[in-house]
């Protein structure tokens, strides 16, 4: 089955034959995936299926053993050429700045205010003057509905507010692609909506996104394509209507979806 989107020319993100093991445990066993510019791809599947690892490899927070990940034609983490030499620390930082990441546990810098969290990358990586960085931070924090919380420390914010700062921190860097790693699973149910609304908004504006989530309803609403991962492989993929509509027969997918109470 093809998981490649035939409509676009060169995809923004191109993953081929991605393999990764932690010692004896193989987590990814040959993943192929393309994400076109402006596309939103959602990865669902059981825990331990390799979703989060896949996402972390795209940002090179994890090294990978085999295969290739390219963003805009540039290999992630390793230098081009036959020898898989790791890129320099400086090079890695430059490439990571091109991808935005939002974490499950927020990972806000607790010693910095909301605005300072957003500004750190703009000032230290993008080398923007403080005033300009501040303006960008204010812009994005307003966009995620936190105009009143600019100078609050993370500890003074609710979980949902913290995660919206996390999103602002990622998108303020103007990334080519946004990686969302189960960004609502650490939140109380009543706070999930405010975070997903922000993501829906970004998607409608054409932000390219690779999303790992357990929110099946959200996956259906936001995605151009849904990818189902299990046992380190992509077991099924397709537009949400096809995948959730039963056009693709995968027993595990059915079992998985029914566990989450989704209609299949």
């Amino acid at each position: 089955m093809s998981v490649l989107d035939p409509s676009s020319g060169t995809p923004l993100l191109r993953i081929r034959g991605l393999e990764k093991a932690y010692g004896q445990v193989t987590v990814l066993r040959g993943v192929d995936l393309d994400v076109a510019k402006g596309e939103v791809v959602t990865v669902i599947g059981p825990s331990g299926g390799g979703k989060t690892t896949l996402l972390r490899c795209v940002n090179f927070l994890e090294t990978y053993d085999k295969g290739s990940i390219r963003i805009d034609g540039e290999e992630v983490g390793y230098q081009d050429g036959p020898r898989r030499a790791m890129r320099s620390e400086r090079d890695l930082a430059r490439m990571r700045a091109e991808t935005g990441m939002v974490f499950q546990m927020f990972n806000l810098f607790p010693h910095l205010t909301a605005a300072e969290n957003v500004m750190l990358g703009l000032v230290k990586v993008r080398r923007k003057p403080k005033a300009e960085a501040r303006a960008i931070a204010e812009h994005w924090l307003r966009r995620v509905g936190l105009a009143e919380k600019l100078d609050r420390l993370p500890s003074e914010l609710s979980g949902g507010q913290q995660q919206r700062v996390g999103i602002a921190r990622a998108v303020a860097m103007d990334p080519k692609i946004l990686l969302l790693d189960e960004i609502t699973s650490a939140l109380d149910p009543e706070l999930v909506g405010e975070v997903l609304d922000v993501v829906l908004q970004l998607a409608s504006e054409g932000m390219t996104m690779l999303v790992v989530t357990h929110e099946i309803g959200f996956a259906r609403d936001v995605s151009n394509r849904v990818v189902f991962m299990a046992d380190g492989l992509i077991a099924a993929a397709g537009p949400p209507r096809e995948l959730f509509g039963g056009a693709i027969e995968v027993e595990r997918l059915r079992a998985f979806l029914s566990r989450f109470g989704a209609r299949v």
Binding site: R56, F60, L61, F106
Partner: peptide, 23 residues
């Protein structure tokens, strides 16, 4: 310090020295 702090610093594109200094 939680591991996620290093990850978040990396994700923003900070180098090792910058992560050490600012995060």
């Amino acid at each position: 310090i939680p591991r996620g702090q290093m990850d978040a610093g990396k994700a923003v594109g900070l180098t090792f020295a910058q992560r050490l200094a600012y995060v």
